[in-house]
């Protein structure tokens, strides 16, 4: 009786050790580039001020940026 239970315990232990790696799956993550999931935004020139004229908007912003250079303003 004692020997029988010892054998069953040994079989259980051997079985659990033998099967321990069977459920292993690769754990290396592959990075996937995300894609914006939110709402679409309007272009800055698509409004009543610029009426969709991209060139006019670019000119306005560029003039504004150049005006930060005080040497240009005093010469």
């Amino acid at each position: 009786m004692k020997a029988k239970s010892l054998i069953s315990v040994l079989v259980l232990v051997a079985g659990s050790i033998g099967l321990s790696a069977c459920g292993e799956v690769p754990q290396v993550t592959t990075y996937e580039q995300g894609k914006y999931q939110g709402k679409a935004d309007a272009q800055p020139w698509d409004n009543p001020t610029f009426k969709g004229d991209k060139a006019a908007w670019e000119k306005a912003v560029k003039n504004r940026a150049r005006n930060q250079h005080e040497y240009n303003r005093i010469q």
């Binding site: 800055p44 409004n47 908007w57 912003v61 560029k62 940026a65 150049r66 930060q68 250079h69």
Partner: peptide, 25 residues
């Protein structure tokens, strides 16, 4: 930006230390 202006911080800068706009400009 949609009004054709630059960020308020840069436009407010008194010494024009902070610049904003197209990187080439």
């Amino acid at each position: 930006i949609a009004e054709g202006k630059l960020p308020a911080c840069a436009e407010m800068c008194s010494t024009k230390a902070l610049l904003a706009g197209d990187s080439s400009t």
